[in-house]
Structure formats: structure tokens, C-alpha cells
Amino acid sequence: MSKIAEGLLYSESHEWVKVDGNVAIIGVSDFAQGEMGDITYVEMPDVDDEVSAGDDFGALESVKTSSELVAPVSGKVVARNDELEDRPELINEDAYEAWIIKVEMSDKAELDALLNAASYAEIAK
């Protein structure tokens, strides 16, 4: 049974979003890391790159599979978790602690399309 953190927003493609003012902190859910198995690499965008909601912004890799990371919101990347470069296993250890990127949102209304923990729980089974 995967863990679903309360108070976060979720996308159907298993990213979570924590809203901090105008900045969206983005990671992947515990369910997603469980499906992937041991994560071996996190492909991330560079700071200052633009991401658009619904488009890939990177990928997770494990030994036998890979999964695209889909941006839940649009905006400019203002930070990325470089610690994941050498220690991708941090996502396996605690998916809600190991954020991937922070995005300065260009359209906060996009958050409305995301799911709350309860709705996401319906998907992440």
C-alpha cells in the first residue's frame, strides 16, 4: 500500500505538487516510485528552463524501465534537486521528501486541474 501525503496536489501521471506562494515544488508520488522499483537516474531540466503543463520535463530511470516526468504546471524552473544526480535512491527512500524541481508558476489556475490526496488515492491503486 503506497503512502499518499495529505496537503499536496497530485497529477494523474503521479507527480505531486506542493504550493509555496507562487512556486510549485514538484516530485513523484510514493506509488510512482514503487512502480518503478530502484530508481537509477533522474533526468532533470536546467534552472531557467521553461516547462509547460502536460509536457515532459524529465524522466525517471530504473534498470528495466523508464518513465517520463510530466509537468503538472507551467512556468520557469527556479531550482532543481541536484542531490538526486548522485543519489536517485532518495526518491525510493521518501518520495515526498525528495522533491525534483521548483517551478515559478505562470498560471496558478492550472492547479485547479490537479487532484487532492483523496481523489489521487482512487488512482494510485
Partner: peptide
Amino acid sequence: TLQAREQHIRREK
């Protein structure tokens, strides 16, 4: 190793 780059996993990507 690093097979997640490859066609049998990534297909068109």
C-alpha cells in the same frame, strides 16, 4: 547497463 536510454524501453523516445 544504462538500458533506459534504449529502444526496447524508451521506444520512440
